[in-house]
Design a protein around this nucleic acid. Structure first.
Lengths: 102, 102
DNA sequence: GGCTGGTATCAGTACCGGGTGATGTGAGAG
DNA sequence: CTCTCACATCACCCGGTACTGATACCAGCC
């Protein structure tokens, strides 16, 4: 059982705006201008966050003329979910393992 | 289907040291001095992080004389895992929902 | 060709949050 | 009671990072 969670991936998702982007992309594939009007954030700000998500492998881009569509990669999220599931399972079984006071 | 992930909870877990603490507590219940020697961090630093984890409801304390045992709450982690599972599932089914270019 | 609109990159700033040292508190041991 | 130890709290510094404005890039339209 691997009870190690990818720290970098969580840190990428720990930002409110990035998590909002991910949540929106989980419902449909969108391009930057859509995300601008959905989130209300500036275009530059969004582009920076999208770069972080892209470099972390959370999203992938698909150019469409002048537009750039962003799509969420479900397997990355699923892998993270699995890591947390393992962690919860480990915690549940090892709840009574109490190391003696030194 | 609720595809909203608790931002505050992720931000709590997004710190490397806190995630290390959680991973250690997933294997056995420990007190602060154990965590000090396991992580190599200062006691003050650990105490600060443990406070954050406590206030977020991730861990619960159990006083034992002069010692304080920290136990991980599996349901909180499991709930987070479920949220990510839902998110991944939503992304998988809605992969082809592409909003038209404006 | 020039122009416009969509997006990415760069440099600067401001702020949040993690690390640390000093100090407080409370329970046992003597 | 006093002293020690385990732990918590407070105040402070400092570095990373999110946000911004200016600018560069690229594709399509005229």
């Amino acid at each position: 059982m691997m009870t190690s969670v990818d720290t970098d991936l969580i840190r990428v998702l720990a930002d409110p705006l990035r998590l909002q982007i991910v949540t929106l992309l989980a419902k449909e594939t969108l391009c930057t201008s859509h995300l601008v009007e959905e989130t209300g954030a500036r275009q530059t700000n969004l582009s920076n966050h999208l770069r972080v998500l892209r470099e972390a492998g959370v999203v992938e881009t698909e150019p469409c003329g002048r537009f750039t569509y962003y799509k969420l990669r479900p397997d990355v999220i699923a892998q993270l979910a699995g890591q947390f599931t393992d962690l919860a399972e480990s915690a549940r079984t090892a709840a009574e393992n109490k190391r003696a006071c030194p």
